[in-house]
Amino acid sequence: MKPKKSITIGMILLLFPLFSPRAAEAGVLGLSLSPSIFEANIKPGKTITQVFTLKNNSAAEQTFVARVIPFTPGDALGNPSLRPNLLPEWLKYFSLSNSDIKLNEPFVLAANQSTQLILTINVPGRTGSGDLYSTLLVSSVVKDTPNVSSTMGAAIGSNLLLTISPLSHPPSLVRISDFAPTKTSFLFRYADVYLVDSLTPIYFSATAKNLGKYFVKSAGALKVEKNGANVSTQNLLANNILSNSERVLEGSPSGQLVYKPSLTSFGNYLVTLDLRNENSSSHAELTTLVLPIKITAVTTIAILVISSIIKVNKKKSDVKK
């Protein structure tokens, strides 16, 4: 290659990053809301206030509407299922204390403008005890755009978990409803003993059910013991378990409940799951029999292959003699 040509190609390569396509920095229609969850335990007759920060991340002015919408647990992973058609009496407890923004009424934010939504919750004195689950939902008002197929609106929510009770720590009743190694983590099961390989991490699935009237936070730990001695401890993530619902329990910090045996792990291991909150607890346990199955299999196959090679060689050399 001529020196002039190679210099030209080098220059082009150096300039290439300047002209390569880039991901868009911001969408045309965007918004943010924080905090994304608000939890409170309120005595009947009390009023509380929480400030939410809303920002219009759009490239242009947008009109928004803030609403409080009841939700029910949508699944065991903590996803709410909004119920906009439910209009319970307790929606009247919620209001915005802003001078210029009201619930269910449109308001305008300029591009990149932030505002504070001051949510006031006023619980009347004779309100019965129980939980109220809702979402503060802020939606953009869909613009009337001519000659397009679909106009699109964006909405963002913040979950409101309220316990109405005269008690600071109302009674709770949470049970571990399911606890087992995942199907791919064990080789064989006999009664309550799971046969596992010493080289395979053991992942557990666990679910808790809240049978009480009030939501609780999962807390506790997954512990592995051998002969009474602690081998490992993994704390649980603090997930909210809503009243009369189930929730998958997760380990900190990855979300997975896992025990990784070492190469030298061998024998019976007791795995316990303890779920505790402020005034109740639940306990589950199972036994895993850890054996070096993979190591033994490979070693056996290796010995068989080597010994058969030696035998064949010996026979051949005997025939030659």
């Binding site: 918004l31 943010s32 924080s34 699109m152």
Partner: peptide, 23 residues
């Protein structure tokens, strides 16, 4: 009262955006 995620709070607010408002 408790607000936000206690154990692993994110510094970034919860945000959502669409690439366009009409197609």
């Amino acid at each position: 009262l408790r607000s936000g995620f206690q154990h692993t709070a994110t510094s970034e607010p919860f945000s959502f955006s669409l690439g366009t408002d009409a197609i």
